[in-house]
Design a protein around this nucleic acid. Structure first.
Length: 570
RNA sequence: CGGGGUGUAGCUCAGUUUGGUGGAGCGCUUGCUUCGGGAGCAAGAGGUCGCAAGUUCAAAUCUUGUCACUCCGACCA
């Protein structure tokens, strides 16, 4: 490819609306152009990278007996009504009608389409297990796309679906897929992705893992143990709290605490620490606005996912209005109004001498003893894990909280879809059963952005050889010099003949422009042909990551470049 | 969905407070010079100031509406 023919322009300045580096560099480098909020067109360099990433994914999926298929982008609503997700999924699912007013949806994930595809085939236990996958465009009307390709509405995704006749078989395959994923991440250049236990959310099912690239720009929160192997998404991380109890329980007493609506103000007023308070966090049930109050120790935060899972329905943070029997800022468990769902976090179990809302404006209870003053209370884990908290695996106070980008995930789905959609096989015992499913996703664009996020400098991305849009970038400095032009042309032609992927810059521009553009394209090997070099009968071969610069005699440049590319030295 | 911000040349942004014939840098075109990290000189092209109403003798500037983008939060296989 001649660089002067490459469609897409490169920019000197960082676009003002780019927050993270990978986004800014991919815009500056002419990799993509935004069409709408969370929707991008891709120029050739990005398309080539995506193609390579997809090839790697394809190889690894095929290696675990996957079969590539293709599901439709547009599906009839009836398919989603079968699984129940036409109702249960929120506005991320785009619903529309065709010319005949028939209801359709835009594919955001393809469990339904997959079950539909393999339903008749999988009619006997002898046909299991099997896995099908596709690499395709998905559309999710995300509430807030951001950070370039990290969070978008339209994106390319590899999604795989496996079918099994036993939980053991699913688990065995799940493990194979897990390892396959680790190979994929290593091959595209981010080997240090960690797999964390996750909450399965709308997908349903039991065990699931998310593959996280740890980086401060990530939008997920991950809990890791520095002492053992424990890793979990914040949503799924168990919180272990050590409750302390004072020797003497004081009397329960209502005291005046004017203008202390926040825990901070209350602690200041009474001269106590946050862990001696019990705060109320309010939610509402999505369908009917039923009020839910979660009581938790004042120094901790509520993990909303745990509350949602415990209750078994969708909730959202609540605004309190007058006349509901709830006193915002002064809500406590003693004499709380009926008709409110009340939950207690384990951090309060067996504690005493706690301060909590008096359910009267400007009053709090002090001396609350949960064992003594509240009857028939159950305590559950509703708290977020904290930095320095106790690890649920090894019991040490060694938890750390980090940010991560979710580059992939794997779910043990169970029979949620095969049951609702009536997929059955005849087992060896002659009885009809529902196959057990697993599903496995990787976002291609997000993966590419993640690689750029890890591998870049201030001048541009530094692509690993495995996914770089080209393998070699030839810069012909002073292409108006006939010797330079002739040599560079020949080198370009010969490398192409040898099957090397080359981007060739023979524009008559200054060295600075040429090098800056090369930096933005991030090709790992750069060959500089110039009058200065040719005078000494050499060419310069440099690595984009600056790991080496060599002056190679002109006779052996071609050979040397091929050797570097083939040996994957970059 | 809640709260902020921004829409002026391909890009980055001044100009809006206080209404009076729209600017800069980069990029683009032409010519000459230059040539190893975003060159110099000269000449040029390029904008219904997001859109629509309104106020006014006069609107990029004031008012209202609307659309788009963006940030924080909520939500998120």
């Amino acid at each position: 490819m001649k660089l002067d023919r490459l469609v897409g322009e490169r920019f000197k300045e960082r676009p003002s609306d780019c927050v993270i580096d990978s986004h800014a560099l991919m815009i500056r480098g002419g990799y993509m152009k935004q069409v709408s909020n969370g929707i991008y067109s891709q120029f050739m360099p990005l398309k080539r990278i995506a193609h390579k990433v997809e090839s790697i994914i394809r190889e690894e999926m095929d290696a675990i007996d996957g079969q590539e298929v293709m599901f439709p982008v547009v599906m009839p609503a009836s398919l989603w009504e079968e699984s129940g997700r036409y109702e249960s999924v929120g506005k991320e699912l785009v619903r529309f009608v065709d010319r005949n007013d028939k209801k359709l949806v835009l594919g955001m994930t393809h469990e339904e389409a997959c079950v539909h595809l393999v339903k008749e085939y999988g009619n006997s236990y002898t046909k299991y297990p099997f896995m099908v996958y596709q690499i395709q465009t998905k559309f999710r009307d995300e509430a807030r796309p951001r950070a370039g390709l990290i969070r978008v509405r339209e994106f390319t995704m590899k999604d795989a679906y496996s079918f099994h006749t036993s939980q053991e078989d699913l688990e065995e395959y799940y493990e194979r897929c897990y390892e396959s994923y680790m190979r994929i991440f290593a091959r595209v250049g981010i080997p240090d992705v960690v797999a964390v236990r996750s909450d399965s959310g709308m997908m349903g099912g039991n065990i699931s893992h998310e593959f996280m690239l740890l980086t401060p720009v990530g939008e997920d929160t991950v809990v890791l143990c520095t002492n053992c192997d424990y890793k979990a998404n914040m949503e799924a991380a168990e919180a272990i709290v050590e409750n302390t109890r004072d020797e003497v329980s004081k009397e329960l007493e209502l005291v005046s605490t004017p203008a202390t609506k926040t825990i901070e103000a209350l602690c200041d007023f009474l001269g106590i620490t946050k862990d001696k308070t019990c705060k109320a966090v309010m939610y509402r049930r999505n369908i009917d606005d039923q009020l839910i109050v979660v009581f938790i120790r004042g120094d901790l935060d509520v993990n909303e996912t745990k509350v949602r899972n415990y209750l078994g329905y969708e909730i959202h943070p609540a605004e309190i209005e007058e006349g509901e029997g709830i006193v915002p800022g002064f809500t406590g468990p003693v004499n709380i109004s009926d008709g409110v769902v009340v939950l207690f976090d384990k951090s309060l179990e067996n504690t005493n001498n706690m301060v909590t809302g008096g359910n009267v404006v400007d009053y709090h209870y002090v001396g609350l003893d949960f064992a003594r003053d509240l009857k028939d209370v159950e305590f559950h884990d509703f708290a977020k894990a904290v930095e320095g908290g106790v690890c649920p695996e090894c019991g040490q106070k060694s938890l750390t909280v980090k940010r991560g980008i979710e580059v992939g995930n794997i779910f043990q789905l169970g029979t949620k879809y095969t049951e609702t959609m009536g997929m059955e096989y005849i087992d060896s015992d002659g009885k009809p059963k529902h196959p057990i499913m697993g599903c496995y996703g990787i976002g291609v664009g997000r993966l590419i952005a993640s690689v750029a996020e890890v591998h870049h400098d201030e001048n541009g991305p530094i692509w690993p050889m495995s996914i770089s849009p080209w393998q070699v970038h030839i810069c012909a400095l002073r292409s108006d010099d006939p010797n330079v032009k002739e040599f560079a042309d020949k080198l370009y032609g010969n490398l192409m003949k040898m099957g090397i992927e080359v981007i060739y810059d023979d524009r008559n521009v200054s060295a600075g422009v040429m090098f800056s553009d090369a930096d933005l394209l991030g090709v790992p090997v750069r060959v500089i042909v110039s009058p200065r070099n040719l005078k000494d009968n050499v060419c310069e071969i440099t690595a984009r990551d600056k790991s080496f610069t060599i002056k190679e005699p002109v006779e052996s440049v071609e050979e040397k470049v091929i050797e570097i590319v083939r040996s994957n030295l970059c």
